[in-house]
């Protein structure tokens, strides 16, 4: 009886060692296989402004509340219009800061007089919830200088961005962490 026990014991040991090697081998070779395909710097998520269709999903899809997506203005592209289609709602009767004329649901756009006839539009990111109403207005009627970006001080960099999954135009993409923003005035479509 003792003999049999030791025999089965040694067989078990053999299986164990074999299994151990079998599992260790791929795990240890993985880094070798992927050595050419790994990236020390990693990725972050960003919105390609030229693919974005301002569908409003950024506001609701982000895991953060409010969304880490904020509107930003590409000043070199901005027309500084008095009649800003990103600031004023459609059918606005007067071009001023009155509540009844504003498009932004959270009042996040700041309109500032620069000089006759120009107005500067900046975004208060603490108020902006990334709804993209202004982006749509500017893209449809203006120069398209207002655009959405994922703000990396707010983004928690999910392994898969929840917005990317929902984005209808595949505009949310991985970009190298060293260049985390896609600034519209610098990129061409």
């Amino acid at each position: 009886m003792k003999e049999r026990k030791s025999k089965s014991g040694s067989r078990r040991d053999f299986v164990k060692t074999a299994g151990r090697l079998l599992l260790a081998a791929p795990v240890l070779t993985l880094p070798v296989i992927l050595s050419g395909k790994s990236d020390a710097k990693g990725y972050v998520w960003q919105i390609d402004p030229y693919k974005c269709t301002s569908c409003e999903l950024c506001r609701t899809s982000c895991v953060m509340t409010p969304s880490a997506v904020k509107c930003t203005n590409a000043f070199p592209m901005c027309g500084y219009c008095d009649f800003c289609p990103g600031y004023l709602r459609q059918g606005a009767k007067a071009f001023n800061t009155a509540a009844e004329n504003q498009l932004c649901p959270t009042g996040a756009i700041i309109r500032k007089f620069v000089e006759e006839p120009y107005f500067e539009y900046t975004i208060d990111e603490t108020l902006c919830d990334g709804c993209s109403k202004c982006v749509k207005g500017c893209a449809d009627f203006g120069n398209g200088s207002l655009y959405l970006q994922i703000m990396h001080n707010l983004c928690v960099n999910c392994n898969q961005c929840a917005i990317a999954r929902k984005c209808p135009s595949d505009a949310v993409i991985r970009v190298p962490a060293t260049e985390p923003y896609m600034r519209k005035e610098l990129k061409k479509s």
């Binding site: 009155a98 509540a99 009844e100 649901p105 959270t106 009042g107």
Partner: peptide, 17 residues
């Protein structure tokens, strides 16, 4: 009416924030 819009607008935004 403009004043009314502003008042309701303010309320809606307050509720949101």
């Amino acid at each position: 009416k403009a004043e009314q819009v502003r008042a309701i607008d303010l309320m809606a935004r307050k509720a949101y924030f």
